Amino acid sequence: MYSACLAVLFLKTMSTARQDQGLTAAQLEAFDRDGYIIVPSVLPPATVESLLVETRRLLDEELSLDDHPMTRFSTGGATGEDHVGDAYFLESGDKIRFFLEEDAFDPATGLLAKPKHRAVNKIGHYLHALSPPFTALLNHEGSAPPKARPAAVARALGFRDPRCLQSMVIFKQPEIGGAVPPHQDSTFLYTNPPSAVGFWYALEDATLANGCLSFLPGSHRWAPITHRLVRKTGGAGGTKMVSNDGARFPEGAEYGEDKKSEPEQGQYVPGEVKAGDLVLIHGNLLHKSEKNLSQKGRIIYTFHIIEGGEGSVYDGRNWLQPPEQGFTKVYPPGV
């Protein structure tokens, strides 16, 4: 996994047409060095619009507040201890469910103070299987955008059997869109060894003003996965953070705490993007976003893949558990 040097050599032998479907050698080198890359204009405007139309349809037709448990999405802050973990959340791995923004509620009354389309923090976690417009992004039969196809990107990154395990539409609502503290995706989507990669598609422009992502370049090389979000045991329900007693880095000599560069922690770099851009995020990379205090929201679509091949173990304690049919294959049948 993440054997970028070998992948670069492999890509240099590929045709230009083939590279257009995955990643170029320069993009692979940047991902290996920084732990993230921004690939511009991956989604054509028509695809972006179709996904926004589907998002609006889900909010209008599928979200009913009459029987909603009013589950608020919380990252749990710096420690993750108060991360959302009710049954509505824990049982969302094979469903489309709606999680509300904490600041959409009146603190005095506890009642929702925003209309529903301005109150949702995210929609998840099975859009890639249950919503045709979002399914098309993962589709290996040709309906996915021709540039940076997920399967080709996964192959370029060295995945043997990539599986999509969760997908989300994430909102940064105007004025109330919450900040997300520095975190690593493999903390929440752990395999042994770590293998998660995030595909993050901007459906609207993301700027410093409305809470774009920021990254700590190179931190994927030296920042270990020290903790994991797991389900509580003993019938108590909910989630908790526990110390990680498994592998803390992907396999490879390029990883380890001794790889920390100077200055010791470095500076976070904002990743402003345009609608249609794709951000690829290494599972060990430290990244964050600030609260949206502007009048303009932003909407993105993201899914994560993990290695499902031999030698990679998905733990039964993870908060997200596979549906009966298993996590969704990214490669076409027979590949």
Rank of each mutant, 00 (worst) to 15 (best):
Y190G: 03
P181V: 15
D185S: 12
T191F: 00
L157S: 11
I176E: 09
A156G: 00
L189R: 04
T191G: 06
T191C: 07
Q184R: 11
F159H: 10
G158R: 14
V153C: 04
A154P: 04
A151V: 03
A156W: 07
F159T: 09
P150F: 00
S167W: 08
Y190D: 05
P181E: 15
Q173I: 07
V180T: 15
Q173G: 01
Q166K: 08
D185L: 09
S186Y: 02
H183L: 12
R160D: 14
T187L: 15
P150C: 01
V153S: 06
F171M: 03
G158C: 10
S195E: 01
D185C: 10
A152F: 09
A179F: 11
A154I: 05
S186H: 06
N192Y: 01
V197H: 03
A156M: 10
I176G: 08
F171V: 06
L165G: 06
G158H: 12
P150G: 01
A151L: 01
V153I: 13
D161P: 02
H183G: 14
G177R: 15
A151F: 08
S195Y: 04
R155K: 11
P174M: 14
A196H: 04
V180Q: 11
L165A: 03
I170V: 13
G198R: 02
L157F: 08
S195H: 00
P150L: 01
V197F: 07
G198M: 06
R160Q: 15
E175Q: 14
A179Q: 15
L189C: 03
P193Y: 05
S186W: 02
L157M: 15
P182Y: 12
Q184T: 12
M168N: 06
S195N: 06
S167A: 13
N192M: 00
N192F: 01
Q166I: 08
G198V: 12
S167F: 08
Q173E: 13
P162D: 09
R155T: 04
P193F: 05
P182M: 12
L157W: 09
F188W: 12
V169P: 09
M168E: 01
S195T: 11
I176D: 09
T191K: 03
N192G: 02
K172V: 07
F171K: 00
C164M: 04
D185G: 11
P194W: 04
G178S: 15
K172T: 07
A196C: 15
V153A: 05
G158N: 13
A179H: 14
I170E: 05
V180H: 14
A179R: 14
S167L: 06
